[in-house]
Write a protein that binds this DNA or RNA. Structure first.
Length: 157
DNA sequence: GCCAACGTTGGC
DNA sequence: GCCAACGTTGGC
């Protein structure tokens, strides 16, 4: 199994939005970065787990856990001229952008703030913590994943 | 293919 | 709101 971290701005789409969706399941739309796309398209597999990360907000951090319930398929918002994610260079015959479907497995009682993640040398190789990093979909090692789960237990009891 | 200008991300 | 770090665009 692979482990991931996926960012979303809560004002755009929060973990509560995902929980409100039918079966707490939704498509992950709007990724418009090639590296992030390639991770989703080429490496994300059914059953992989991912942290839901809230970015660009008052307290950025990890807010819950998802799993991948559908592997990559074309991001239809890229084909919709009315979507803010519209990309005229993407066509049905040759889709440029891809999405996966995710399901919320757990929402943490307390967020794991970015500022806390930064305090542990065990995590200092995480892409998330690299200076200047802006990647919105990134892999985690199983060690990083497990370490963050123990942090979560300490925080949430 | 180079690179300056511009747009975006996202922490603070 | 500021700004650093990137990614993309487009002229040449």
């Amino acid at each position: 199994m692979n482990y991931w971290l996926m960012k979303s701005e809560p004002t755009t789409y929060s973990i509560d939005d995902l929980i409100r969706a039918p079966k707490s399941t939704d498509h992950w739309e709007g990724v418009r970065n090639y590296q992030a796309r390639n991770f989703m398209r080429d490496n994300m597999r059914l059953g992989d787990q991912a942290f839901f990360y809230h970015s660009n907000c008052e307290i950025p951090g990890i807010v819950g856990i998802m799993d991948i319930v559908r592997e990559s398929y074309p991001d239809f918002t890229a084909l919709d001229p009315d979507s803010k994610y519209y990309d005229p260079k993407s066509t049905p015959e040759d889709p440029r952008w891809f999405m996966v479907s995710v399901r919320c497995l757990e929402k943490f009682k307390k967020i794991i703030p970015l500022g806390l993640l930064k305090k542990y040398s065990e995590l200092n190789k995480m892409i998330l913590l690299k200076p200047g990093n802006r990647l919105s979909v990134m892999p985690l090692t199983s060690q990083e994943w497990q370490f963050i789960l123990t942090l979560k237990k300490e925080l949430n009891g």
